[in-house]
């Protein structure tokens, strides 16, 4: 547990928590502009959150602790990921947790608790949302893990810090076919995991097309705020992960203030850029039918498998 790690462990979560609503704001704004609208401004998600925290809490009758605890767990898992993953610093505050599998599993844990909360309400929509969410999760998991496999094979470790450092020291690796294939696979996975188009439409009002939204229909006030915050954080975390796995430059490998500042800025720029690209991309896409989604995920799985094959045969 180095000083660098501790600094990272403090800076990263703060950055993620503060920045992720802004990221969502940016993405919405980009979309609005591309659609010819004016948009509510980058700060709107923060305004929404502030308002939600000020509102009344509601416990729907017949729900249990699972329903109330789920938002907390959702945020907590993402927070742990934000602490341990090398976003700003290459070292991790809690190194034995900074494992790629652990991180993936933690994020899945968050999704699971939310799905359980959706089932806990006993409404048709809650069940529908969690059923769909779990289906997608089940299909995303193999791609995610195989992509990780592809990335970690050349490093010989699944420790995130090790992977990032290795890429940092050997930049040529980034332009290898392994990275390319794995990156494409991961992008698709991230789109699915964060509930973006074409897998899920985050701004839909139509219940039949909902996935994520359907699960959280019963949440109100601060609980909803936590859910929204968490989903924004998950988006940032995934984008940050993507950025640092493939383009780790700028990340702080020493505990000096300059390096840290550079690290923070680099992260903001990288994640912001990815967010903008993602939002812009969404304008061109329509939502896929739910049962076309597996095709997409199968494609990404194939890519990740090819990445592994490439990492062995083209090494």
């Amino acid at each position: 547990m180095s000083a660098l790690g501790i600094v990272g462990g403090v800076v990263q979560p703060v950055l993620i928590v503060a920045g992720s609503p802004l990221l969502v704001g940016v993405m919405r704004q980009v979309r609005a502009r591309l659609e010819g609208r004016a948009g509510p401004g980058v700060g709107q998600p923060w305004r929404d959150l502030r308002k939600l925290f000020g509102k009344e809490r509601i416990s729907p009758r017949g729900t249990s602790e699972v329903f109330r605890v789920a938002p907390l767990v959702l945020v907590a898992t993402t927070l742990v990921v934000a602490v341990v993953t090398p976003f700003v610093t290459t070292d991790s505050a809690v190194d034995p947790v900074a494992d790629l599998f652990a991180v993936v599993a933690l994020l899945a844990l968050g999704a699971v608790t939310l799905a359980l909360a959706g089932l806990d309400t006993g409404t048709a929509f809650g069940g529908m949302g969690s059923s769909r969410e779990m289906t997608i999760l089940a299909l995303v998991e193999p791609t995610l893990l195989v992509s990780i496999f592809a990335l970690s094979v050349r490093v010989g470790s699944t420790n995130l810090g090790a992977i990032v450092s290795a890429t940092l020291h050997d930049p040529v690796r980034v332009i290898s076919p392994v990275s390319l294939l794995a990156a494409v696979a991961l992008i698709i996975v991230i789109v699915a995991e964060t509930g973006r188009l074409p897998v899920d439409n985050p701004s839909t009002h139509l219940e039949l097309t909902m996935v994520h939204e359907a699960m959280v229909l019963e949440y109100a006030g601060p609980d909803l705020a936590l859910v929204e915050l968490a989903s924004a954080m998950r988006m940032s975390v995934f984008l940050g992960l993507l950025a640092n796995l493939f383009l780790p430059w700028g990340i702080a490998s020493t505990a000096t203030p300059i390096a840290l500042l550079v690290g923070v800025l680099a992260l903001i720029i990288k994640v912001g850029l990815l967010g903008v690209l993602l939002a812009a991309g969404e304008v061109f896409l329509a939502k896929l039918r739910l049962f076309r989604v597996p095709e997409l995920l199968a494609g990404s799985f194939l890519l990740s498998l090819l990445a592994v094959a490439a990492s062995f045969f083209l090494a």
Partner: peptide, 9 residues
């Protein structure tokens, strides 16, 4: 604010 119990939506 007090937590309010409500009908399921």
């Amino acid at each position: 604010r007090a937590r309010r119990a409500a009908r399921l939506w």
